[in-house]
């Protein structure tokens, strides 16, 4: 079976600062991988590399068996043109820390935009499945509401519906609950838990230890641009072997 995500020695520099110092990991289909670690450890940068929002400087990164953002000719990598990168991204859904809903569009318009404009789905079909998705995230009564009139938790649930509307094989979550008021975190995690249950492949950067322990199949602990420890969340998060993992967990728990 091809891994959904396969990273081999991924390096990323911002100017002189090396943010990723050789990340290698593997996500199998239908797996939920949770990436934890202190801020500045490179976990957000890594998840953004998976759909080529950041270009990697060295190493290889495959999604479902295809190189991300590059074409290999002999030994050299050539960056793909904009159109090719865009096509590849239609298979990868992404949810951002700050929601990034399109402010000039209603919840429904946010969800149907990419299916209609990118996938050329007929409008009535796109609207029907968008309404179904909004119902699934519990927002059937907010279809015609603009993002500015929604709470953070509601906005994030629209953002999840928007990503799902493209029928992705893989969902990336970049700290999806970090910008939310504490009482709104639960409703978003609930939607994500539902996605995991129906077999969606997910990579989740999060500080929610409880979610990682209960929903995650693999937990990865990153620090200073490297993977420090990874494995079964019940092991990594309950009985960490590495000192850095231990000290991080003792601070957040």
């Amino acid at each position: 079976m091809t891994a959904m995500v396969l990273a081999e020695g991924v390096h990323k520099r911002f100017g002189r600062l090396e943010v990723l110092k050789g990340i290698s990991l593997e996500v199998q289909p239908a797996q939920v991988m949770c990436i934890l670690g202190p801020s500045g450890s490179g976990k957000t940068t890594f998840i953004r590399c998976i759909n080529h929002l950041e270009k990697i400087n060295a190493g290889r990164l495959w999604v479902d068996g295809e190189l991300v953002g590059y074409r290999q000719v002999g030994d050299k990598l050539h960056e793909l043109p904009d159109r090719e990168v865009a096509r590849k991204r239609t298979e990868i859904g992404m949810v951002f820390q700050r929601f990034n809903l399109f402010g000039h569009m209603t919840a429904l318009e946010n969800v149907v935009e990419a299916p209609i404009r990118v996938k050329k789905t007929p409008k009535d079909h796109a609207v029907r499945s968008a309404k179904e998705l909004l119902r699934r995230v519990g927002l059937e009564d907010k279809v015609d509401v603009y993002p500015s009139q929604l709470s953070g938790g509601q906005q994030q649930r629209v953002a999840i519906a928007r990503a799902l509307a493209m029928n992705p094989k893989l969902m990336l979550f970049d700290e999806p609950t970090s910008a939310l008021d504490p009482e709104l975190v639960g409703e978003v995690l609930e939607v994500m838990r539902g996605l995991a249950e129906i077999g969606m492949t997910m990579v989740v950067v999060t500080h929610e230890i409880g979610f990682a322990r209960e929903v995650g199949d693999v937990a990865v602990f990153m620090d200073d641009g490297v993977v420090v420890e990874s494995g079964d969340p019940k092991e990594v998060l309950v009985n960490p072997r590495n000192e850095r993992t231990k000290s991080f967990l003792s601070k957040v728990l």
Partner: peptide, 15 residues
């Protein structure tokens, strides 16, 4: 973030 979200949904730069 608006541009990034659009790109993440598979939109080209022009779209």
């Amino acid at each position: 973030g608006q541009t990034e979200a659009a790109h993440a949904l598979g939109m080209t730069r022009l779209l």
